[in-house]
Design a protein around this nucleic acid. Structure first.
Lengths: 117, 117
DNA sequence: TGCATATCTGCAAATATATGCAAATATGAT
DNA sequence: ATCATATTTGCATATATTTGCAGATATGCA
């Protein structure tokens, strides 16, 4: 059964890269369009070196690509659909107990969007 | 910005749990319906204790629930849609370079389904 | 050239996860 | 009760990840 094993390993690698709150927020941030490292660092309230490391992790599996303009590196999602796909996982998570019904799901979506720039 | 931080942490937790090839295959296995631990262990070619630990991880965030019948524990996905959602990530992964176009995506889907029981 | 800004890389300590195996628990059958 | 089966739990070791910080590289401007 080599086929599934290979694919599941690749999928697990992607999940591993996304398995960090900062990187989840980073991907959602890039869901709105390309941004340079400093802008991302500011938006996320993180030191630039850390953002750079997170981006390196995402780059290692080509989840993001970069475009250099002068001394700034603008990053964007290789597959813009990824940001939306992540939000499709909202029904699976638990914020104060299981989410039952579309009403509570809407709650969580609002919670996510609450402080959007 | 507490809203997004909380949600992103929950999302990252889910990604962390799925960030293991065995658990990815396990979830896909349960996508076809409930199964008991031994059946899963056999299908995945893993020792039962390890499957049990993987299930405990999935259970810890209510990604699976169990039903006991005699000495067997039948597990199933709390949200059956999760199996399909994982497969939606196929366009994001790289099997021998980036996947370009629906043709290569179909390749990967076949690769996944290749040895299905 | 020299200086400031933007980004990246490397290191070390703390923390977390994976793996294999042994032992414990629970259920059902004789 | 005794025994076999099914599942879970615990422990020890190996490996990986996170974090903060320092230093290195690269670009643009005076």
């Amino acid at each position: 059964m080599p086929g599934r094993v290979i694919v599941s390993r690749e999928l697990a690698d992607i999940f591993k890269i996304l398995a960090h709150p900062d990187r989840v927020r980073l991907v959602e941030e890039l869901g709105h369009g390309e941004k340079d490292v400093t802008a991302i660092a500011h938006a996320l309230g993180l030191p630039a070196p850390r953002v750079s490391q997170h981006l390196a992790a995402l780059r290692s599996h080509r989840l993001v690509t970069d475009r250099r303009a002068g001394r700034q590196h603008f990053y964007r999602l290789t597959r813009p659909g990824m940001a939306g796909w992540i939000l499709d996982a909202l029904p699976f998570l638990e914020v104060r107990g299981p989410i039952e019904g579309p009403a509570q799901l809407e709650e969580v979506r609002k919670l996510w969007a609450a402080d959007h720039a």
